[in-house]
């Protein structure tokens, strides 16, 4: 029944927008998974989305709203770009790429820790700290692109000078998607599952998230655990940013984070904070993102319609979710 409501809701929006309902649904699907190259595009969006979502699971576990994930992606991209610029003529491109991964993850982690410290030491709500840091990160990227990292003689919104091809993660022509990126994402998924389910850290995060005051009784330190959660989340977001630079754009561009951080928040909420759902919901969102380009291409519809569909979907599910929990007299648990 619920699913029917969602579909009716989406279709109603399409009718309101004057779009042919069936054709739009069809186009979204064929546009996303109609061919291997389309699927590869979806996977390219799926990678950062899934990485950010994995990161957010740590912070949601402990009850933190890490909205700063967007900025953490950007800092990862900045860190990676810095390394690649330093090592542009290195004889060991592989080592430079490896270093870029590490520095990118560190960049994201440090940015997240900043928000975490503001929370644990400064008492600043992590939502405000995160949002503020997102703006700072965006400003930093623009400053770098228009300032110290601008192309010779020209500053342009199209970003920094592209890196030499030896500093791209290879994408085999038939694959159209970097196996490194896919592999790293799968590793991140597995590692997150392992940490959350089978380690003391995962247990402690859950305990603090469930009841911060009681956790003291068990000798847990919520502050330190929060920093751990933020650090891990930031590192994964930073990895997403690094891959945006090394796999997708091969340079730093102003919109490098592409709102994937914010989108990942929706993914995790829609996944009901469960890791097992994350890859699928992330795939669905990625498909919607990629498929929606067909709307202007074929039907001359505004492609922001897919954003409306996405938003409506999340809202509907959350509403139903809240309604159900209200009926059962329980608050949501992780």
């Amino acid at each position: 029944m619920v699913a029917a409501i969602v579909l009716v809701f989406i279709s109603a929006i399409l009718v309101l927008a004057g779009a042919p309902v069936l054709e739009v649904h069809g186009l979204l699907v064929t546009g996303a998974v109609g061919s291997w190259s389309k699927l590869a595009q979806v996977l390219r969006v799926w990678v950062p989305l899934t990485l950010c979502s994995c990161g957010l699971l740590y912070t949601f576990q402990i009850g933190l709203w890490n909205i700063g994930v967007e900025g953490q992606v950007m800092l990862g991209a900045i860190g990676a770009t810095a390394v690649l610029r330093l090592g542009f003529d290195s004889a060991l491109p592989g080592a430079v790429l490896g270093a870029a991964l590490v520095v990118g993850m560190l960049g994201g982690a440090l940015w997240a820790l900043l928000a975490g410290l503001l929370k644990t030491w400064g008492g600043v709500n992590e939502i405000f700290a995160g949002l503020g840091l997102n703006f700072v990160a965006q400003g930093l990227i623009l400053w770098l692109i228009f300032g110290p990292w601008r192309r010779p003689g020209v500053a342009s919104m199209s970003g920094t000078e592209p890196f030499a091809e030896s500093l791209w993660f290879p994408t085999p022509a038939v694959w159209r998607i970097s196996p490194h990126a896919l592999g790293l994402t799968l590793v991140a998924l597995a590692a997150t599952a392992l940490v959350l389910r089978h380690t003391r850290l995962g247990l402690a995060l859950r305990a603090v998230g469930g009841n911060p005051s009681a956790s003291y009784l068990f000798g847990l330190k919520p502050g330190r655990l929060m920093l751990w959660a933020m650090g891990l989340a930031g590192a994964l977001a930073g990895l997403a940013g690094t891959l945006q630079v090394t796999v997708v754009y091969h340079r730093l561009i102003p919109a490098i984070s592409s709102n994937y951080g914010y989108l990942a928040l929706l993914v995790v909420m829609l996944a009901d904070y469960r890791l097992s759902w994350v890859p699928f919901i992330a795939f669905f969102f990625a498909a919607l993102n990629v498929g929606s380009i067909q709307l202007p291409l074929v039907l001359q519809l505004d492609s922001s319609l897919s954003g409306v569909i996405q938003g409506a979907l999340v809202l509907t599910v959350l509403l139903i979710h809240a309604w159900n929990s209200g009926k059962a007299g329980t608050r949501w648990t992780t």
């Binding site: 029944m1 619920v2 699913a3 029917a4 969602v6 579909l7 829609l270 996944a271 009901d272 759902w277 699928f280 669905f284 599910v317 139903i320 979710h321 159900n324 059962a328």
Partner: peptide
């Protein structure tokens, strides 16, 4: 319940 909701949603979408 939630799980069912989601499962249903995804199934219909699929």
């Amino acid at each position: 319940m939630i799980k069912k909701t989601l499962l249903g949603t995804l199934m219909v979408l699929a």
